[in-house]
Simulated scan of single mutants.
Amino acid sequence: MNENAEASKLEDMRKSIVVSSRVRLARNLEDYNFPNKLEANEAKDIISKVKESLDGYDINFNAVIMAEADMLYKEYLLENHLISKEMSEEAKGAVFINEQNTLSIMVNEEDHLRIQALLPGLHMDNAYEMCDKLDDLLEKNLRYAFRENLGYLTSCPTNLGTGMRASVMVHLPALVEMGFITPILENATQIGLAVRGLYGEGTQFIGSLFQVSNQLTLGFKEEEIVNSIMGITRQIIEKEIEAERILVSKLGIVLQDRISRCLGILATSRVMKINESMNYLSKIKLGIRLGWITGISDEEINRIMIKVQPGNQIIDYKAKSQEQIDTGRANLLRTIFKDVDFVG
């Protein structure tokens, strides 16, 4: 392989490690209590104010009122990272979502507004720009709670200042396999980062997927937070690439066998549990990154990891029982992977 081809392959590996980038801005309105103290009529008033403010925006938003949505649809939104677990349990809340599912506003969660941009890959700058533009529009019509010495006032003191959380979802199978992940996670927390599971705080680590975000916002500019997260992410990426090289060198054909077996199971199974499918898909992502699997892209695997979730199976594929969820998941995966090849 020539130098240019090697550099291109390495860049593709870096891109595939970062599943998504997210920026979230917490905002509260003057003259209203924080959401945990809001009366029902006040909560409705805030939802109406946000809706009216969005009428002048050049992007269409769909409104979902939590009190009117059933639990299955809330689970679907959670699995697609459009709402938080707390929002799914909040009867006074609402969420406004654009048609591409890349921009959303949770209303009356922990704060009055949680403005969020979610993009595939390492595109933190673009996610911040999207959030900032929407934030500016809303601020023209809504009076934010802001103090010169504290910045934006938030329900949780750790969000004071910019009210901004920036996070990346990273896929780190080699670091997990080699047992290197624990010290990396410990180091991350020591420098003021939070490391969480697939759906944020309190959720489990599954499929070697980890969310890494800043914990503090007071005293930092938005650009500093973005640059810090992107810098740390690049360091984690290089550690994962090095771990993958070590793993290939150490296991060789044994690793190839593990990944090819995962492919065989995905292409033939009749029943598939969620954790099982996520772990197999994680191995397939690694196989694609190493150049051992053809016929499917890394981006497709990222989308499949959402489609196999229980809520997505119920909403998109009309599953009505746990058995139908597990068999429907297997049917979906079997259809997708029947023409995927192992070439390692």
Rank of each mutant, 00 (worst) to 15 (best):
I232S: 02
L263P: 09
E177W: 08
L247C: 15
G192C: 01
L209I: 07
Q211P: 06
I253Q: 13
V248Q: 05
V212M: 00
P183K: 02
E240H: 05
R165W: 12
I206L: 13
V226Q: 07
K283Y: 14
S249P: 08
H171Q: 13
Q190M: 08
K250M: 14
V170Y: 04
L218R: 10
E223I: 14
L266P: 02
L263E: 09
E244K: 11
A243P: 13
V248N: 00
V176Y: 13
F180H: 12
S260T: 11
S208V: 10
H171G: 11
T189G: 06
G219C: 02
I246D: 04
L247S: 15
E276C: 10
I191N: 01
G231L: 07
L286C: 11
L172H: 03
K273C: 09
P173Y: 09
K283F: 14
S249G: 15
E222L: 00
E238Q: 06
T189P: 03
L185F: 02
L185W: 00
V248T: 09
P173E: 08
L255C: 10
P183T: 01
Q211W: 06
V226M: 12
L266T: 04
S269Y: 07
S269H: 08
Q256K: 13
A166G: 09
K273Q: 13
Q211N: 07
S228R: 02
L198T: 07
A166R: 08
V226K: 03
L281I: 06
G202W: 03
N227M: 00
L218T: 12
I288D: 11
N227H: 00
T189M: 11
S167L: 11
G287R: 11
K250Q: 15
I225W: 00
L172Q: 08
G202V: 02
E244V: 08
S249Q: 15
V271H: 04
S269P: 03
V168R: 05
G197Y: 02
I229S: 00
I229N: 00
I236H: 11
M169F: 07
I259A: 07
S208A: 15
R258L: 12
I181K: 10
I225Q: 00
V195N: 07
V170P: 01
I184Q: 07
I259V: 12
M272Y: 12
N275G: 14
T189S: 12
G264M: 06
I181D: 13
Q235K: 10
E244M: 11
I288T: 12
R270K: 05
N227Q: 03
K273I: 11
L198M: 06
T189Y: 04
N279K: 10
Q211M: 07
I184E: 10
L255A: 09
G197I: 05
V254F: 08
